[in-house]
Amino acid sequence: TQVHVDGVTYTFSNPEEAKKFADEMAKRKGGTWEIKDGHIHVE
């Protein structure tokens, strides 16, 4: 599962880990995350 944050791609083999990471990054940025085309995007 790929997580895209500010133009950087992080790859996780476990989708649950990817979601936890996205959640943390979104909180830090004061933003949100969503799943697009099977990838997670942090806004």
Rank of each mutant, 00 (worst) to 15 (best):
T1C: 14
G7V: 02
T9M: 12
K20A: 13
K29R: 11
F21N: 00
A26N: 03
G7M: 05
T9N: 05
D37P: 01
V8G: 06
I35S: 06
I35D: 06
D23I: 14
K27Y: 13
G30Y: 03
T1Q: 06
V5D: 04
N14F: 07
P15M: 15
E43P: 05
A18Q: 00
Q2C: 13
E16V: 09
D6H: 06
D23Y: 08
E17G: 05
E16L: 09
E34K: 10
S13P: 10
H41K: 06
G30S: 04
T11W: 14
R28W: 13
I35H: 06
S13N: 10
D6F: 07
W33L: 09
H39T: 10
I40T: 02
F12R: 00
D37L: 04
N14C: 14
D6L: 05
T9V: 14
T32A: 08
E17I: 08
G7K: 06
V42A: 02
H39Q: 12
A18D: 00
T11E: 08
D6M: 06
T9P: 04
F21W: 07
A18E: 00
G30D: 06
T11Q: 08
E17V: 09
F12N: 00
G38Q: 04
E16C: 14
M25R: 04
T1W: 13
K29Q: 11
G7N: 09
H39F: 07
G31K: 03
G7W: 05
P15I: 15
G30H: 06
K36D: 05
A22Q: 01
K20T: 11
V5L: 08
A26M: 04
K36Y: 09
K36E: 06
M25S: 06
F21P: 00
N14R: 07
H39C: 15
I40D: 02
E34M: 11
T9F: 11
A22G: 03
E24P: 00
R28P: 04
P15D: 10
D37H: 05
A26F: 03
T1H: 08
E43Q: 14
E24H: 08
T1G: 03
V5Y: 07
R28I: 15
I35T: 06
T1V: 12
A18K: 00
K20I: 12
T11P: 05
G38S: 04
E16A: 09
G30V: 02
D6T: 04
A18F: 01
D23C: 15
V8M: 13
K27P: 03
K29A: 13
K19P: 00
H39K: 07
S13F: 10
T32V: 09
T1R: 05
W33P: 04
V42C: 04
A18V: 01
K27A: 13
T1M: 14
K19M: 15
E16K: 07
E17H: 09
K36P: 04
K19L: 14
G31L: 06
H39N: 08
F12P: 00
V5C: 13
D6Q: 06
D23A: 12
E16M: 10
A18R: 00
A18L: 01
N14Q: 08
E24Y: 13
D6G: 08
K19D: 03
V42Q: 02
A22H: 01
H41C: 14
S13V: 10
V8P: 00
P15Y: 15
F21K: 01
M25W: 12
R28S: 14
Y10N: 01
K29C: 15
G30A: 04
P15F: 15
G30N: 09
V42D: 02
G30Q: 05
R28G: 11
E16Q: 09
N14I: 08
G31E: 03
Q2P: 07
F12K: 00
K36F: 08
F12G: 00
N14E: 09
T32Y: 15
A18S: 02
E17C: 14
E24T: 08
H41M: 10
K20F: 09
E24A: 10
V8E: 12
G38Y: 03
V8R: 12
F12Q: 00
V8N: 10
K29T: 15
G38R: 02
E43W: 15
G30F: 04
A18C: 06
K29S: 14
V8K: 12
K27T: 11
D23W: 07
G38V: 03
H41W: 15
M25F: 06
E16D: 12
R28Y: 14
G38L: 04
N14L: 09
T1D: 03
G31I: 04
T32W: 15
V42G: 02
K36A: 07
R28D: 13
S13D: 11
V5H: 05
W33K: 03
F12C: 09
I35V: 10
G38C: 09
P15Q: 12
D37K: 02
K36G: 04
T1F: 11
F12Y: 04
H4S: 06
T11K: 08
H39G: 07
E24R: 09
K29H: 15
Y10T: 04
K19S: 08
E43T: 15
E34D: 07
E34P: 03
G7C: 15
D23T: 13
T11I: 12
D23G: 07
A18I: 01
R28A: 14
I35K: 04
N14V: 08
G31V: 06
K20Q: 12
E34L: 13
Q2V: 12
D37M: 05
G31M: 07
A26V: 14
K29N: 14
K20H: 10
P15V: 14
V3W: 01
A18N: 00
P15H: 13
W33V: 13
G38D: 05
V42W: 04
I35A: 05
M25V: 13
A22S: 03
T9Q: 08
K36I: 14
K27R: 13
R28N: 14
N14Y: 07
S13R: 08
K20E: 12
D37N: 09
K20Y: 09
E43H: 15
M25N: 05
I40S: 01
K20P: 01
F21R: 01
G30P: 02
F21I: 01
V5W: 04
K36H: 12
G7F: 06
G30W: 02
G7I: 02
G31W: 07
T9W: 11
W33E: 03
